[in-house]
């Protein structure tokens, strides 16, 4: 189970609303490399993960991604609060506004809605952990791209925090992959799928 804690993982206090920035930052809420996809990817993969340490990393990183989802939503909310119709038009947010008003909706910067196709759960320990390492790098690149386009220090600070966490998660997933490989035949890591072939009925 999960329990809500009434605090952000890292503070977000944006003094100046700027809906134009929210338009692309929302991609880390519901886009292809966003936080909801990351969280559901790891939390889905853990059920069939046979190695205890790797299942721990998937559980704990998947949980932290939910805290990141809340931070991104908070950034979007604070950038769009109290916006007037004139500001909506100036920012080119008419299409978002007509469907969601000031509500936070899981979509990519390009406007397409969150799609579970963006997260993988293959049921193979090596495949899934390599996917996770790539996912962390893709999210890191997205945050780098966001940082190229924002100039407000109130936005930069939490985005930089989120970017740093992608690097830490990449490191932990790399260690989880090493632990998985330590349990396999070093002459051929791919001879079997440990999530399927090492079940008692297959031995």
């Amino acid at each position: 189970m999960w329990q809500y804690e009434k605090k952000l993982q890292f503070p977000v206090n944006i003094k100046n609303p700027n809906p134009a920035m929210a338009k692309f930052i929302i991609s880390q809420y519901g886009g292809p490399d966003g936080e909801i996809g990351a969280s559901l990817r790891y939390l889905s993969q853990r059920y069939s993960m046979p190695y205890r340490e790797a299942a721990g990393v998937l559980t704990d990183v998947g949980t932290e991604e939910l805290a990141h989802l809340e931070m991104v939503a908070t950034i979007v909310r604070q950038l769009t609060r109290n916006m007037t119709i004139e500001q909506v038009k100036e920012a080119g947010m008419e299409t978002y506004f007509v469907d969601h008003t000031g509500g936070v909706y899981a979509q990519a910067a390009a406007g397409f809605p969150f799609d579970a196709l963006c997260f993988a759960s293959k049921g193979d320990a090596i495949t899934d952990l390599v996917e996770d390492m790539a996912a962390e790098q893709k999210a890191r690149t997205t945050y780098d791209n966001i940082l190229r386009m924002v100039d407000d220090p109130d936005v930069i600070a939490p985005i930089r925090f989120l970017r740093e966490r992608e690097i830490v998660h990449f490191q932990r997933f790399g260690e989880a992959l090493r632990i998985v490989q330590d349990n396999l035949d070093s002459k051929n890591f791919y001879a079997i799928n440990p999530e399927f072939d090492l079940r008692p009925q297959n031995l």
Partner: peptide, 25 residues
């Protein structure tokens, strides 16, 4: 805000160390 920051800092230390311990138990 200052008191909340103390909670956030300690929580972050624990969270990050827990992740490290997952792979270095």
């Amino acid at each position: 805000n200052e008191m909340l920051r103390k909670v956030q800092e300690a929580d972050f230390v624990l969270y990050d160390t827990a992740l490290f311990l997952d792979t270095h138990p």
